[in-house]
């Protein structure tokens, strides 16, 4: 469902010249599984996922999402994904219902079908009590629910969540994670990025550790732990980071990473 091959993305920076934010990233993600992208801030998670969402064009390699190449058929890709990140806010001057309806219409869902779908989604996320509240009046938790509703309104086969729990309180965090698990159980392909080890342990069947713009390791969690001889994800993560830093120092300068 998602196939990423040797993906690379460079940005031009006036001071530093061309900077490789992501380099040679490859992974695959299948329906009914949650693929975790674990990495610290600035590791290249957001850049990778933005490339999958087609708002950034890769400078190297390719990515196929839901059967379509992100460069050749970006509109077909966008039609088939639900994307949620810190950058996808909700409109202040629209109510929850209006916002979800607006995006539903942009996905081309017929009016009647859209209303039924929205009733189902609003009930699923327990959003009925703030249907007519403007975005500017909502709490963070409400906003996050509206974002999720927006992400799933067109029932996409592929869902991409870029740090969906950052900045949320524990209660909302739990709701969000529960919903993502439910989506997996519906057979969706889910990519999920985070810098939280516990979330990865709880949700993901497979995980990739990304650091300095490159994939340091990937595979099912237990296999990774066994291969690297680490007791848990946190230790695994620090071991990989140390190894990457050492390699980086050894290589002298070379490309830095930014996202």
């Amino acid at each position: 469902m998602i196939l990423v091959e040797h993906l690379g993305k460079s940005f031009h920076d006036a001071r530093r010249g061309w900077v490789e934010a992501v380099r040679d990233v490859s992974f695959e993600c299948r329906p009914g599984e949650i693929f975790g992208l674990l990495g610290p801030n600035g590791a290249g998670k957001t850049t990778t996922l933005r490339t999958l969402s087609t708002v950034l064009k890769p400078t190297e390699g390719r990515a196929v999402v839901a059967g379509y190449d992100v460069v050749e058929h970006p509109e077909e890709v966008r039609r088939r994904i639900g994307f949620m990140s810190a950058g996808t806010g909700i409109y202040d001057r629209m109510t929850a219902w209006e916002l979800v309806e607006y995006f539903g219409r942009l996905y081309g869902i017929p009016k009647d079908a859209l209303r039924d779908r929205m009733e189902a989604v609003f009930a699923w996320l327990r959003m009925d009590d703030f249907r007519d509240v403007l975005g500017s009046k909502m709490s963070t938790g409400m906003k996050q629910k509206v974002s999720i509703a927006r992400t799933v309104v067109h029932d996409p086969p592929v869902l991409i969540f870029d740090e969906p729990t950052s900045g949320l309180d524990i209660l909302v965090q739990r709701t969000v994670l529960d919903k993502i698990l439910e989506l997996r159980d519906m057979g969706k392909t889910v990519v999920f990025s985070t810098h939280s080890m516990s979330e990865v342990e709880r949700l993901c069947s497979r995980v990739a550790v990304i650091y300095r713009g490159r994939l340091q390791a990937q595979g099912p969690i237990d296999e990774l732990l066994a291969a690297h001889g680490q007791p848990n994800v946190e230790e695994l993560f620090f071991a990989l980071v140390e190894k990457a830093d050492a390699e980086y120092e050894a290589a002298g300068a070379g490309a830095g990473a930014a996202s």
Partner: peptide, 14 residues
């Protein structure tokens, strides 16, 4: 500034 540009860009609208 309000962080809604990307929301619109990832919709199917060209």
């Amino acid at each position: 500034e309000r962080g809604t540009m990307e929301t619109l860009l990832i919709s199917p609208a060209g």
